[in-house]
């Protein structure tokens, strides 16, 4: 064998000399079967996160939406309303700044900001390190606010129980068809900023129909963090999810 490149060279000399490949032994490249998913490493880390979260009895949500759909406002409102009954922790994903983490910190809930820099999504590795500061067994619900982006976060499992996709009524009802990956990956779609409906042509039923066309199993809630409409149903959904997670552990 050629000691320089490991190829199966012929001739006695090839095992001994160090050469510049000037000689003409057979250099056909070797084929190596791989069959490994590009997301395999992320999926492995996400599975590790999921095991860790399940052991801690933690209900974990991955909040996804376009920038400005109201993820942080929904979190603030939820933490203020349910904070007294449930123990939350929050991971905030943004490319830059700690503005969102500061808003969450003001509610008194433990929060950690992850800045992805040029990155357009959170991945399972960032989340694994992001939760290190939290006392997970002493937490009921972990909210992960992903980078505002309706495309990239769809494929990256973080170890969450559910992806929750927010869509505000100012964005147009056709978003589920325009960005189907995200709505297909989500268990719940929240139609947000319902208080603005009187000023818009947003067709709520059409939006729901579009979402079900890509994901017939998707649950749908409509709410407004400003008026408080629909929040009770969201809180019920959270409580049911947490109860289910705990029951599964026992």
């Amino acid at each position: 064998m050629c000691i320089n490149c490991g190829c199966a060279g012929t001739g006695a000399a090839s095992a001994l000399h160090v050469h510049e490949h000037a000689h003409d032994h057979d250099h056909a490249p070797r084929a190596v079967r791989v069959e490994e998913d590009l997301l395999a490493k992320n999926d492995r880390l996400a599975a590790g996160n999921r095991t860790r979260f399940t052991r801690a009895g933690l209900f974990v949500l991955n909040l996804v939406s376009s920038p400005g759909s109201g993820k942080t406002t929904l979190l603030e409102r939820t933490l203020r309303d349910l904070g007294p009954q449930l123990r939350f922790a929050v991971l905030e994903g943004d490319q830059q700044t700690s503005f969102d983490a500061d808003r969450i910190a003001a509610t008194g809930v433990p929060v950690r900001q992850i800045n992805t820099g040029a990155g357009c999504h959170l991945d399972a590795h960032m989340v694994a390190h992001g939760v290190e500061a939290f006392d997970l067994p002493a937490t009921d619900i972990l909210m992960i606010e992903n980078v505002g982006n309706l495309v990239c976060p769809a494929g990256f499992d973080l170890g969450e129980d559910h992806k929750v996709a927010l869509l505000s009524v100012t964005e147009g009802e056709d978003k589920p068809l325009k960005y189907p990956q995200m709505f297909e990956a989500a268990s719940l779609m929240i139609i947000n900023k319902l208080d603005l409906l009187p000023y818009l042509d947003f067709d709520v039923e059409r939006c729901k129909d579009f979402a079900r066309r890509v994901n017939p199993r998707i649950a749908i809630l409509e709410l407004s963090c400003r008026s408080g409409a629909g929040l009770a149903a969201w809180y019920d959904w959270l409580a049911a999810g947490l109860a289910q997670k705990r029951a599964a552990r026992e």
Binding site: C5, G6, C7, H27, P29, R30, A31, V32, R33, V34, E35, E36, D37, L38, L39, G155, R212, R213, V214, N215, P216
Partner: peptide, 27 residues
């Protein structure tokens, strides 16, 4: 999820999501 034949919301994809390294050629 819309079946192109009957229109039901029951169409299950079984291919088209692949993102997989299959093979290398090396020296």
């Amino acid at each position: 999820a819309v079946c192109p034949a009957c229109g039901a919301l029951a169409f299950e994809l079984d291919a088209g999501r692949e993102l997989r390294v299959m093979e290398l050629e090396i020296d």
